[in-house]
């Protein structure tokens, strides 16, 4: 309790305003707008009007929904404490996640606000009894830029970017891409013949919710204008090698730039790109990693976490990042940037 109060004091002193979040969210906010990613984690139920509601699976989403309801446009700093309820993948995982979260919406200066969120997390960490910690920083934007530079069909670039946060599935996709194992050339031949027949029909005709034009356009892109080429093995290797990069934060720009140069990717990372550039912050080792922030589907740019040791095991005490698309994806008419972090109170 004392610790939680001291966390709150830090947040108040940094001008974060305390807000209360709703415990339940109408499921459509999660499913219809941001897609079905969260479906598997939801505890949901129906009201008397057959509207589906869910216990909040994530405090960030609740906070964004509140932000949208209040129609705010200016830079806003919020913090909140509470429980999130999520179905767990393993029996040992708890379905109740106690968290304190803090966020900055509508940043005027993204880099400065990223730095503020990371530094506030460090201040909170210092109030705890954890003696040693490791701060890992990454940036999903670099991955997106890398994928955009690769020579492969656009739809595959989008697909790979879309599944950054689904590690197991992304690996399956990369395997398909490198081996073309999902292409049945005999079926393609037959389908090309069928396509010629269908071209004679009205392009506006609807087949299972899609117009014939939509179907044929995508068919043509897949098979004629933007087919898969043989160089994908090389591309897949570049992506896999990228995910292996992990180094001290001060060396990250140099190592990344060497990697991009070696692979002719025409990308440059400037030395002041990351919110923290020192390798050591009094008992906190700072590393750059390409492989973090991969379990949260809405992160889009800077991501970070702080790892601590509890009873001999490594746990994530703070995790956070920037999610510039989420506010719009959840229904706000304007593009509002956002960055935030969540502290795992279960570890205290």
């Amino acid at each position: 309790m004392k610790l939680k109060n001291s966390f709150n004091q830090i947040l108040k002193s940094q001008n974060f305003k305390y807000i209360e979040l709703d415990s339940i969210i109408e499921s459509k906010h999660i499913l219809k707008r941001s897609g079905g990613n969260f479906r598997q984690y939801l505890f949901s139920f129906y009201d008397q009007n057959f509207r589906e509601w869910s216990l909040r699976p994530d405090l960030t989403i609740s906070s964004v929904i509140k932000f949208i309801k209040e129609k705010i446009n200016d830079r806003t700093k919020w913090y909140y404490t509470g429980e999130a309820y999520r179905k767990a993948n393993t029996r040992s995982s708890s379905v109740i996640k106690k968290q304190t979260g803090f966020e900055i919406y509508a940043s005027n200066n993204n880099n400065k606000d990223d730095e503020e969120i990371v530094k506030t997390s460090i201040k909170i960490l210092k109030k705890t009894t954890f003696k040693k910690a490791q701060l890992n920083i990454g940036n999903i934007e670099i991955f997106y830029a890398l994928v955009n530079r690769l020579e492969m069909p656009n739809r595959w670039k989008e697909r790979i970017k879309r599944h950054f946060s689904r590690e197991v599935y992304l690996n399956k996709l990369l395997k398909k891409l490198s081996t073309n194992s999902d292409i049945n050339f005999e079926v393609v031949k037959q389908d090309k013949k069928k396509a010629e027949k269908l071209r004679k029909e009205n392009p506006k005709k609807i087949f299972s919710g899609r117009s014939l034009k939509e179907i044929l356009d995508r068919f043509d892109i897949k098979n004629y204008s933007d087919p898969r080429v043989n160089s994908n093995k090389k591309n897949v290797k570049i992506i896999r090698d990228y995910f292996k990069i992990s180094c001290s934060i001060d060396k990250a720009p140099k190592i990344l730039n060497e990697f991009f140069k070696k692979n002719n990717l025409n990308l440059i990372i400037s030395p002041d790109y990351f919110p923290i550039r020192k390798n050591n912050l009094k008992n906190i080792k700072v590393l750059f990693s390409t492989n973090i922030g991969r379990s949260v589907p809405y992160y889009s740019n800077m991501v970070f976490n702080i790892k601590v040791k509890v009873k001999g095991k490594i746990h994530t005490f703070v995790s956070g990042g920037r999610y510039n698309e989420l506010v719009k994806n959840l229904g706000y008419k304007k593009n509002i940037t956002a960055v935030g972090a969540a502290i795992d109170l279960n570890l205290l």
């Binding site: 897609g35 079926v187 044929l216 897949k222």
Partner: peptide, 22 residues
Amino acid sequence: VSTSWLDCVNPTDLEEISFEFF
């Protein structure tokens, strides 16, 4: 899926179509 969905051959297609559809 519908036999007229010529561009939908495997789950990777279905995944992409579902995004475009949405």
